[in-house]
Design a protein around this nucleic acid. Structure first.
Length: 368
DNA sequence: AAATCGTACAACCGCTCAACC
DNA sequence: TGGTTGAGCGGTTGTACGATT
């Protein structure tokens, strides 16, 4: 039994709005406001439209000071930055861009910005494939370097459109970030894009994917992470949900108030590693030992085909064994993890672990 | 010139949340 | 306290239009 429809679908007009309809709606709202009831509004003004449709039309098109198209570089950067930080919460992103609507930004992201980044990513992948050997040496070198040296080797750019280096937008996130189950749902769907953004030059940590897959960080096996670059760790304030803990982007290092002006958060300074487990002194293991890449039980890399290239993706689907370490090496990304071994990939915790590792500890950004 | 394809954007759908009764 | 309802949100679809074949 579904919920009752918000209006009589049979007597409601759908499709594009006519100028007459626009004029009716606009003039009424400008004179009387919405009256706090969108459902009743169309009847009041004699429009054969659903109230939801009226609301959308007003918010996305008729409202004063709405801008359409012509996104600036700065707006691109803000969108990228916020997407990395909070995912596809378009309404929050829109709140940071005066005159832009969530729908507009969503469309812009899906039709242009995402493709722009994907195109760049493909270029990078081809380039990186040629330096795999060197990369492996680089990884072991990096592991022995002190933190400052590693940090210096990271090329961080504030420009999304920079085609020469991986980028990480350095713009501050200004919005308070409310969180809800609904938010978690939406975050899941764009995880692969965020991975792309991470790979393009930054690091990102989030446990949201594990949450909406039914996971609970406290239920997971201890996971320890030793990141090779300084991070800022955000701790939820007492009383805030534990899943609010997140590691900021390197861009945050430039902004002492990053990432959220949100009383739910407190922040410890740079150079603090993300420690999600209990024992931070475990030896480092290749995560490939932990997460077999030929498992069919979990879509750990679903959606990553564009990130790692078709060949890689096909290998995985073809059942060829490939470790996560291999994947990292081939993709030109690397990470240094502390983990607890998992004996069996069919373990019931596997799904949770896979997604959690994937989200929590993916890091990228190899300096050219 | 017609058909096909790709892109951009408007609009719709279904869901969650919160207010209200 | 539980049910109902409207608002708001994000994902998806539909369509117009320009580019390409």
């Amino acid at each position: 039994m579904g919920r009752a429809p918000c209006c009589d679908k049979a007597n409601v007009k759908k499709g594009p709005w006519s100028p007459e309809e626009d004029a009716k709606l606009k003039s009424y709202i400008e004179q009387n406001g919405t009256g706090g009831n969108w459902i009743a509004l169309p009847q009041k003004i004699g429009l054969k439209r659903c109230g939801k449709s009226c609301r959308l039309r007003w918010l996305n098109y008729l409202r004063p000071n709405i801008k359409h198209g012509g996104f600036s570089e700065e707006e691109d950067n803000i969108i990228c930055s916020l997407y990395i930080s909070i995912g596809s919460r378009w309404s929050i992103i829109a709140a940071q861009l005066p005159g832009r609507t969530d729908n507009d930004i969503k469309n812009y992201w899906n039709t242009r910005l995402k493709k722009k980044l994907l195109g760049k990513q493909r270029k990078e992948h081809n380039h990186q494939a040629r330096r795999i050997d060197g990369l492996k040496q680089e990884i072991s070198l990096m592991m022995t370097m002190n933190k400052e040296a590693v940090d210096n080797s990271m090329v961080l750019s504030s420009n999304c459109n920079n085609t020469e280096t991986p980028y990480w937008p350095e713009l501050p996130v200004l919005a308070p970030i409310p969180y809800s189950n609904q938010d978690a749902r939406s975050l899941n769907d764009h995880a692969s894009i965020r991975r792309l953004l991470m790979k393009l030059g930054g690091r990102f940590s989030s446990d949201d994917e594990s949450i909406h897959q039914g996971g609970n960080m406290e239920q997971l096996l201890p996971i320890n992470v030793m990141s090779s670059a300084p991070d800022v760790t955000i701790y939820p304030q007492e009383g805030a949900p534990s899943y609010l803990a997140a590691t900021s982007s390197p861009g945050a290092l430039n902004n002492p108030t990053y990432p959220f002006e949100n009383p739910q958060f407190m922040m410890e300074g740079s150079g603090v590693n993300l420690l999600q487990g209990h024992d931070q002194h475990q030896p480092n293991h290749d995560i490939g030992q932990l997460v077999g890449f030929n498992s069919s039980s979990h879509g750990m890399v679903d959606g990553l085909e564009f990130l790692y290239g078709d060949e890689l993706y096909n290998n995985r689907n073809g059942g060829e064994g490939m470790t996560y370490g291999d994947m990292l090496a081939r993709s030109g990304s690397y990470s240094v993890y502390d983990t607890q071994p998992v004996a069996d990939s069919t373990n019931s915790n596997y799904d949770q672990l896979g997604s959690s590792f994937d989200e929590l500890r993916y890091s990228g950004g190899v300096a050219e």
